[in-house]
Design a protein around this nucleic acid. Sequence first.
DNA 1: CCAAAGTGGATATCGCTTATCCGCTTATGT
DNA 2: ACATAAGCGGATAAGCGATATCCACTTTGG
Lengths: 198, 198
Amino acid sequence: MTEKTPALRRDAEHNRQRTLAAAREVFAARGLQATLNDVAHHAGLGVGTVYRRFPNKEALAEAVYTGKLDDIRAAAQAALAGQDAYVALRAFLELALEQAAADRGLRELMRQGTSDNEQIARARQGIMESCGRLIARAQKQGTMRDDITVGDIAPIVSMIDSVMDLPPAGAVRPWRRYLALILDGLRTRPDHGGRRPS
Amino acid sequence: MTEKTPALRRDAEHNRQRTLAAAREVFAARGLQATLNDVAHHAGLGVGTVYRRFPNKEALAEAVYTGKLDDIRAAAQAALAGQDAYVALRAFLELALEQAAADRGLRELMRQGTSDNEQIARARQGIMESCGRLIARAQKQGTMRDDITVGDIAPIVSMIDSVMDLPPAGAVRPWRRYLALILDGLRTRPDHGGRRPS
DNA sequence: CCAAAGTGGATATCGCTTATCCGCTTATGT
DNA sequence: ACATAAGCGGATAAGCGATATCCACTTTGG
């Protein structure tokens, strides 16, 4: 909308990129609680330089993550194209959580329901909307329990998230096992015909 | 072992109890990060009084929680008496997590795998031992998937824990739903005969 | 070549917790 | 009742770690 970038000096722009790159790495590795000092040092810059471009950590985080979150939202929307809604939802969640697994900062951003930035809130909203549709369709297709709702997505993500730092056992990252366990639990069982067990 | 309590003045003992009671309440409500100042104020005492009896927060937390944790360990051991090991394990986990649901401090204590106090570590060890046996027996009885191990208990607890603060929807606390979902997932399915699905 | 833009990083500020200190109060036993 | 050891309160010292600023110096680009 209001595009008013007063043109940055060449070196300044370069340092801006270095800052963003460093922030991506540092936030991914140590989470959003990493200090801007950390980020600056990692970028080989002084703190002042970073603060010159980004008023504070939140702004930097926003710059780093809006893109990523939009990608995920796009993936969720793309999932709507699949014909088996349960399979599509499952694939989407696996993909999204794979992203999260590689980026601590992203996880922290997803977690907090309130506060946040408006852009990010909207991305999350979009994701949830798509998930909601997938759930509804899967239920219509008879592959998902009737008592599941969109409200279950966030808790499921939260649960997997809480287990994401477990050290890989052999070739498998433990969280994948648990995700599979839970997603299996969302299916209708042949013997219960759409109703939940017990 | 070294029992050397040099007899406390009557009022002092009284205040000690008040401190413990206040700590139980405050830790349960706000978690272990509550300050000793909070606890003292909640007990209607000065900070100094609390520090006179307990060298620091950790000591107070230990005094508050060793009992509770031992109860849970006892429950785990008692569960070994049940004849259906899967049912017994399930009942135990429901009970233990019910405790945790009512006590934020207890949850935080359970969570951290390392550090801690020796007593507490031992309690956790005992609990895990019993769970291990229950799992082994359930598998022998053919009611639990063969690929489950004791190592899965902590992650499961962690997952439920991460979801415990969700506001009750109607009469059910959401975490109970998710716990049921996961525990169902641990069962052998009639159609898979002890092997895990897909 | 010189203004404007950019840079670095020491440091002021802040918010928060933990823990101490010490003058005053209270319990207890003789 | 009185002496005295034990206990009490709570202001505040000390520590900590993060955020954000400031300004003397360097670099860019017309």
